[in-house]
Each structure stands twice: as structure tokens, then as C-alpha cells.
Amino acid sequence: MSDSQLRLVWIYPDLLSTYGDQGNALVVERRARQRGLDVARIDVRSDQPIPTSGDIYLIGGGEDRPQRLAAERLRRDGGLHRAVGNGAIVFSVCAGYQILGHEFINDLGQREAGLGLLDVVSVRGEGARCVGDVLGDIDPRLGLPPLTGFENHQGVTHVGPNAKPLARVRFGNGNGTGDGTEGAYNDTVFGTYMHGPVLARNPHIADHLLKLALDVNALPPVDDRWYEALRQERIAAATQPA
């Protein structure tokens, strides 16, 4: 491995790649290459060990049974813990977000242990499934423009004291707790309920992950014309009643 190579790890595409979230890997990879970086994208199937020397790890959403299987295999593997210990950046969506927390409700209706990498606990929502476009304001400490995404989940996630909500929703549900929070993050681990995929709707978050991984404050600009056009359209759509 050369020092100039960015190692991008896409965790368990065989289990957690049901809702187009592999787009997040494609967006990070593309935007890194546009900055002249050499990118190694490593897709890790659930019968393979998680490499511990990656720079950015991405986990997507998935259905209930695959989510349980993924949690079992990630707990047994232990590689993601070591990677985070080494300073790796992790970005997770929906089922993947729940897995990174302390626990969630699995497909059998039982409490399933997560990885405890993010101080959140997920339960099953009692109300209607949260489906639709979302608009939110990202934690101002991150200095990022508004969050747009598409949510589709029954889960409700409570953010503990050792994590911060990623955003406050203006339209949509987010964490589903009723307090307007959406997603969670700490220094290096991020979670969100947003699909879309979320990094295609919010390329600035992809750049934020790259900056953290590269330990730089700025990146050369790239042509964001189509991303911006899509953002404007989806932000307008989120404010319309369904």
C-alpha cells in the first residue's frame, strides 16, 4: 500500500446494499479521483475479513434479516473496531447506522447488540413507516449546507451523550424520536437514515469525509453543477406536502 493511496472500504455489499447506498462509495471514489487521488476501493463480502488499514469505511442500508446477519458477522470479525481505533472514518446509512450503535431490534423482534462505535440505541417505531424526502440543517459545527435525503425506515434512534445529532430536520422525520434530530456523529463515525443516496444529494458530506481521512482543511473544487441542480430540486420537493 502506498501512502498516496486512499483506501475506501465498502462493507458487506451482499447484505447491506439494497437501497442504492453503494452510490455513496461511487461518489466518494469519484470525488477523490477528481482531486487526483489514487483510490483503492475494497468491497468486502460478509464471508471475508474486514481490512483494518482502510481510510474510509461505508455501510449501507438493508432489510431486517440481512441486518442481523451483518451485525453478527461484524461483531465476530472485530476488524471495524480495530480500524476505528486506527483513526479510520466510518459513514453509515439506515440499517448500517443502527448496527454501529449499542443495540437495535432485529427481524425476530429481539434486541440485537450493535458494535457500540456510535452512542445511539435504536428501537422499532410504533407509528407509520417514515418514507419520503427530508430536509434538515446539519450541525453548524460541521459547517455544511442543508441536508437533503430520502428516508424509508421503521426504526427510531436515540442519540446518547457521547454522540451529537448530525442534523435537525425541517421536513421529514430523521431519527423518528419526535425531537427533530436526524443521524448522529462523533469525531470519526457518522450515521444517518438518509438514502438518495445521501452523498449524491450532499457531496459536501463526501468531501468532509475525505478531508477527515486526509487530515486537510480544504480540497480543490470540482464541477458540482448537477449536484447543485439536484439539491435545489429535492430541497424544493421536501417542502411540498406529499
Partner: peptide
């Protein structure tokens, strides 16, 4: 279907 995320698959 109202979610376009599948385009990325």
C-alpha cells in the same frame, strides 16, 4: 416507486 436510489444499483 418514489425513491430513485435504485439508479445507483
Amino acid at each position: 416507486g418514489t425513491d430513485t436510489s435504485w439508479l445507483w444499483d
